[in-house]
Design a binder for these strands. Sequence first.
DNA 1: GATGAATGAGACTTCATTCAT
DNA 2: AATGAATGAAGTCTCATTCAT
Lengths: 220, 220, 220, 220
Amino acid sequence: MTRNLPAAHSSSTMRSLKERQREERAALILAAAQEVFTERGYYDASIDEIAARAGIAKGTVYLHFASKEDLLVALVEQQIVGFLSFVDQIIGEPLTVRARVEQILLNVYTRMQEQRNQVLLELNNRIGLTKSVIEKRENLQAHITQAMQRITALLEEGQRSGELDSTVPTPLLVATFVTLVSPSGYELLLISGQISPAQLAAYVSRIFFPRLAAPSLQQA
Amino acid sequence: MTRNLPAAHSSSTMRSLKERQREERAALILAAAQEVFTERGYYDASIDEIAARAGIAKGTVYLHFASKEDLLVALVEQQIVGFLSFVDQIIGEPLTVRARVEQILLNVYTRMQEQRNQVLLELNNRIGLTKSVIEKRENLQAHITQAMQRITALLEEGQRSGELDSTVPTPLLVATFVTLVSPSGYELLLISGQISPAQLAAYVSRIFFPRLAAPSLQQA
Amino acid sequence: MTRNLPAAHSSSTMRSLKERQREERAALILAAAQEVFTERGYYDASIDEIAARAGIAKGTVYLHFASKEDLLVALVEQQIVGFLSFVDQIIGEPLTVRARVEQILLNVYTRMQEQRNQVLLELNNRIGLTKSVIEKRENLQAHITQAMQRITALLEEGQRSGELDSTVPTPLLVATFVTLVSPSGYELLLISGQISPAQLAAYVSRIFFPRLAAPSLQQA
Amino acid sequence: MTRNLPAAHSSSTMRSLKERQREERAALILAAAQEVFTERGYYDASIDEIAARAGIAKGTVYLHFASKEDLLVALVEQQIVGFLSFVDQIIGEPLTVRARVEQILLNVYTRMQEQRNQVLLELNNRIGLTKSVIEKRENLQAHITQAMQRITALLEEGQRSGELDSTVPTPLLVATFVTLVSPSGYELLLISGQISPAQLAAYVSRIFFPRLAAPSLQQA
DNA sequence: GATGAATGAGACTTCATTCAT
DNA sequence: AATGAATGAAGTCTCATTCAT
């Protein structure tokens, strides 16, 4: 009696299957890491708990990430990339700068509320990601730089169009914006009690933009 | 003939001497701790290094602070208290809200530049000071609450006077302000390159206040 | 106005006065040490607490005892000497061996109940006094040997007189006796609930002596 | 043709294999701990030395025992359980109380001589096992209580049968017995020089039982 | 002589990382 | 590839002892 193998997959298919499985595994670990890092902070998070939460063994984590620091960096990078792609998408839309800024705020705050990730985790050293760590990682460095450039471009456009105060150095505007968008900023913003991401975005926008400028999102 | 006793240090003098020495020692340790915490973050800072930096033995640290956490809390408290006293002083002055806000910004940024302390270290969890830690310390908790109340009062006044947008919930304004004043915010602000604390304060103020509102500090 | 010094003591008087004060101090420390050692055991007892309990400074302890171990040894020695002198006194009395044994039991148990000391602390390693420690101290060694010799002599006499089983090697009888008289034995004996030292002594004697042998203490 | 899978270890076999290895490891550590605790006492024993003696790394100890105290408690429990099972076995035999007591003594002294363990380590606080420690451990507490109950039952039976003096409160007899069987008692008994466990058991029995009572072990 | 601040060796314990199975 | 037992560096904290005042 012969065994009927389910149609010999081409080696390339096999590889891509394995590849896919591997990536799924990595994503699973990253998700677990995100949870634990968020709950406990980088130092109090243990590889043991991350592995347990991902349903795998401790050693397996190291098949995907070379070290705990690497895991953090990968996580941060993932988030930056996600942020970057959203920004790239929004930035091309035919809206006022203010409207686009508000879209970004809304996206960030919504994701934060969903606890699904803490965007821009990395622009901020909340978890203990020291500058030296970032500097060692060229990729990460590059992604962060790109994100900052996008934001800079957007806000510069706002200054040129008069939506933003052009007497303030752009980098300062950028810094302010980033601060408002970072997790620690978000946490503080939450002090005001239950407030929806949309409201939060609108209010922050109102603070950020000259109060007499054009209206936005809400009432367009 | 009477013997002139050698100045018979009054017991109160003696006590205050020892007391003073003790406080100096504690201050020395706090300064070293500040340095190391700032350089390495709370977790990567070791008591060993703090002691070495202070020029004392490891055990001596524990004569003054019961634990590493205690050391951090004391440091944070010291800074909050300093911040609080400055705010209390400035808040009573007969100036516009904007002018007073700028004074505060100036003070904070100046001290940060001098590396002498990182004010509001605590309102932010940069170093890993978890919320649970703060909650255990009633004193610290109280001081933070007070500081927030002062800021809230000031900004509320600004909203009533029309200097600040009164349609934004005050807690949100407070959160934004605190974010801009916290170390992580400061670090970002520095991205714009060499800029003096005074300029920084002015620019941040310009962002924070409606651009068409009354002038301030600069040109009064 | 002249001060009237209280009659220049002769240097010898002075010396003996100082000597006496010194000894009092030492006794004070020993008493405190006894308390703390008993409450916490040797290792969990801290010099700090002993000094505090004696109402002196930590450093002062070291003016009287070279080390923590020394303090323990001195304490033990003090107790052995006290035990020895009591035994020497009782051993010469014209009583049956059993009666004298009961006197010793009574004395030991009474003192234990009074918590004032834990006689024979040292024949037993309850506190963690290791054999090696004892061996280093010739004096202590000698005192313990003497005490054992006195007990041995007494029990040998009992074996000769027929009060004790002469077919049992004397050292074994001695060991049994010492065990019953040591603190750990005493603690176990207390399990039986509230019982007076006198009762305890009588019962232990009854166990120790052949039940059909001559009567004793109790019943004349 | 069928493939003979390599013995397809049933999951239960696998588990029991790991389980067995784990237990062996734990036993190895306990043995090393026993040695070191015995040589140095609880406080002067270091985890470092225990690990070295077991031929493993320090951290490995903590994979099996949560703390140094836990290690001690486990050791003590192991011994109590062994003692208990032996007593349970012997207690049912159709022998005189005296014969059974002698069996117990013989067993205990033999094991002590073999240095393999120090039975009843725990009924005695030789190592510094404080009462408070025992009280925290319900299991240990329960085992000790059981052991005491067995001994109590046995000696009560002896009192009823006339082998033991019924005028002495049973708890006192129990205490005396336990004292003679505990490590510190054993050590003292050894003072009499080289003596076999059997002789020791016989002599102690002779002391413990009324000298005119029935003969025993020896001459059956 | 008395003090108690300072010292620093050393203890326990954690946990990222490795590697034999 | 996956596992998880083992490792051992490193950290926090204690406390006996010293010594300048």
